[in-house]
């Protein structure tokens, strides 16, 4: 898909799809709507409502924010800043899908109710709107990746060390990285999620615990370089993991990671979707891998010289046929 089509997709097709998702159910049932929609749910059922007009206005505003994000990426000139690409493209799509989905599923589920208090719990609503959000975010992210995105500075060759490895010599380098702040934040969010779930609404546990666990997962990293390539594992869980085989690596180098250049903290970008991914844990030294297919992977580690040297040595002794 070329750049122009991607811009049309992101600026017109996806916004139109989000608008259709949002407004088609509304238009279908517009003569037959209840006085109020249940829009807030407590442990004993719906406990908050809006008139169709209020709900429509609120949704339209939020939808426009999401569409605006995608459209601003679509009309941008010159290479995109990765942060803009992430916020505008991916989060814009997520926003549009989520709020469009909430509105659409609420109408589909509640249009034939006599009283909003009879509305059933938000389980399907959450599932449906999150699915819509993920689909839109994925599509928007994929389209965004077709646009030119600013590359972080390419390191000079002095930053690509190597080491001597004898013919039968095997080497492994391994490091751990902990970010105490992320650990604290992750624990706080998770605890807050549990407390909210106990005292307010059970389903708040879902987003809170998920984001808490996601933060906790990224609070500690284990990075290992060996003859097999680079392995990154996150947190204490066996999954997710990243493995970059040595035969996919072109060069390994030492870089200075500035989080804003890579789109912030955490796992940024996507190797499959955006040709570039970085595990950014802090600002400072990091290891950058330029892959043979032109993709870039980076991870923050202390003393990246050693893993860079090791991987370059392993790349050098790969049989030439593998390229």
């Amino acid at each position: 898909m070329n750049e122009k089509l991607a811009r049309i997709g992101l600026g017109l097709v996806l916004p139109a799809a989000a608008a259709a998702l949002t407004y088609v159910p509304y238009l279908m049932y517009r003569n037959d709507l209840p006085d109020r929609f249940a829009t807030h749910f407590g442990s004993s059922g719906p406990d908050g409502s809006m008139t169709p007009g209020q709900f429509l206005t609120l949704t339209t505003v939020l939808l426009l924010v999401g569409i605006g994000g995608m459209a601003s990426v679509a009309v941008s000139r010159g290479p995109l800043h990765p942060m803009t690409a992430w916020l505008g493209g991916v989060l814009g799509g997520f926003f549009a899908g989520l709020f469009g989905g909430i509105f659409a599923f609420t109408i589909l589920m509640q249009h034939d109710l006599d009283d909003w208090r009879q509305a059933s719990g938000p389980g399907w609503l959450i599932l449906g709107s999150l699915t819509a959000a993920v689909v839109f975010a994925g599509a928007a992210g994929w389209l965004t990746s077709r646009l030119p995105i600013q590359q972080p500075d390419i390191p000079d060759t002095a930053a690509t060390p190597t080491m001597l490895l004898a013919e039968h010599e095997h080497a492994v380098w391994s490091a751990r990285l902990h970010n105490r702040w992320l650990l604290v934040i992750g624990v706080c969010i998770t605890i807050a999620g549990v407390v909210f779930a106990l005292y307010i609404q059970w389903w708040t546990l879902l987003p809170m615990a998920t984001s808490g666990l996601a933060v906790l997962t990224f609070a500690s990293l284990r990075v290992r370089a060996d003859g097999d390539g680079l392995h990154v594992s996150y947190g204490i869980l066996p999954w997710p993991r990243t493995h970059i085989p040595v035969n996919q690596i072109e060069t390994a180098s030492v870089i200075d990671i500035r989080p804003m250049e890579w789109g912030g903290w955490g796992y940024r970008g996507s190797l499959k979707l955006m040709n570039q991914a970085a595990v950014v844990h802090r600002a400072g030294p990091g290891l950058r891998l330029d892959l043979k297919d032109g993709k870039v992977f980076a991870v923050t580690v202390d003393n990246p010289e050693t893993p860079a040297a090791l991987l370059n040595a392993e790349v050098a002794r790969q049989p030439a046929t593998s390229s």
């Binding site: 010599e169 080497a171 490091a175």
Partner: peptide, 10 residues
């Protein structure tokens, strides 16, 4: 931490 081992060494 870097560890090396030479499988060809005595």
């Amino acid at each position: 931490m870097l560890l090396k081992v030479d499988l060809g060494s005595t």
